[in-house]
């Protein structure tokens, strides 16, 4: 197929322009800002500050730790959900309905949803009230304003991304492959482990990357559900931009977060590739 050079320019140009305008230029601005000093000079002192201060390493560690937990939980909940929708819900109308239910929260502001968790997880919230009335606990559990609370709130927000990604891959797995496995003597569980799951790995990888990166950069949910007691990178960045008005330092934190996230993802993909080859 031959492509008219002009259409090639258009086809490539539009996304490239989009990328430049909405990603490279803003990020370039941020990157440049991060080297700016209050006196108008240039220096890498901000990076030095982050690199040598354990506090910022701690915040980075907490950010990734929370994002990892969120990814893990979303995977453990989202995969079976996607599997059930794909294979066990036969009625197409019901399936569509379930998809809508899963996607609907995405149309709600994350602020509203985070405040919803404040009500649910609080000392007098539904979760504690229920556990107390069942006499499973005699004192309200401290869930809110802990790492666990942040993870729960974020996992809820991220769930649709995992479910949709995994379901779209599962849908494309030819069901006759499963039948072939059963036919060749595999118990349903074995058929899942040997055939369905390995074939759905692209969805798992894509879904976990999406959820992980969104979790790393999430601000609203952790800032509300942490109650200021746990500080992730996005909160520190927001603090620099909105409260202390130290834009260069905020920019430095943002660049540090982006670079370390990219490094982690690159490492993850490298491990997967090695594993796939080996």
């Amino acid at each position: 197929m031959r492509i008219n050079p002009w259409s090639a320019v258009l086809l490539l140009g539009v996304p490239v322009a989009f990328l430049i305008i909405f990603f490279i230029v803003p990020f370039g601005t941020v990157a440049v800002t991060s080297f700016r000093m209050p006196d108008g000079g240039w220096s890498a002192a901000n990076y030095e500050k982050i690199a040598t201060d354990a506090y910022y390493w701690g915040a980075l560690y907490l950010t990734f730790k929370i994002a990892l937990w969120v990814t893990l939980i979303v995977l453990l909940v989202g995969y079976p959900l996607a599997y059930t929708i794909t294979y066990n819900v036969r009625n197409p109308l019901l399936r569509r309905f379930i998809y809508i239910v899963i996607v609907t929260p995405l149309f709600t502001s994350s602020i509203v949803r985070a405040f919803g968790w404040l009500v649910l997880l609080g000392r007098k919230g539904m979760v504690n009230e229920t556990l107390m009335s069942l006499e499973l606990i005699d004192k309200p559990l401290q869930i809110l304003f802990t790492e666990g609370g942040i993870v729960i709130g974020m996992a809820y927000i991220m769930l649709p991304f995992m479910v949709l990604t995994v379901a779209s891959i599962l849908q494309n797995i030819n069901t006759s492959l499963l039948e072939a496995a059963r036919d060749l003597g595999a118990h349903p569980v074995v058929a899942f482990l040997k055939v369905t799951f390995p074939l759905s790995l692209p969805g798992v990888i894509a879904g976990s990357l999406i959820v992980f990166t969104l979790s790393v950069s999430a601000y609203v949910t952790p800032s509300i559900l942490s109650g200021g007691k746990k500080t992730v990178m996005s909160m520190l960045i927001y603090q620099q931009y909105a409260a202390t008005l130290n834009f260069p330092f905020g920019a430095t934190l943002a660049v540090a977060l982006l670079v370390s996230t990219l490094l982690l993802i690159a490492g993850y993909l490298l491990v997967i590739e090695r594993h796939a080859k080996g």
Partner: peptide
């Protein structure tokens, strides 16, 4: 119990009894 960023967050904590 918590540190609030936005005034509304603080108010909501009083509302919920937190």
């Amino acid at each position: 119990s918590s540190y609030y960023d936005a005034s509304g967050q603080g108010a909501s904590n009083f509302q919920s009894g937190e």
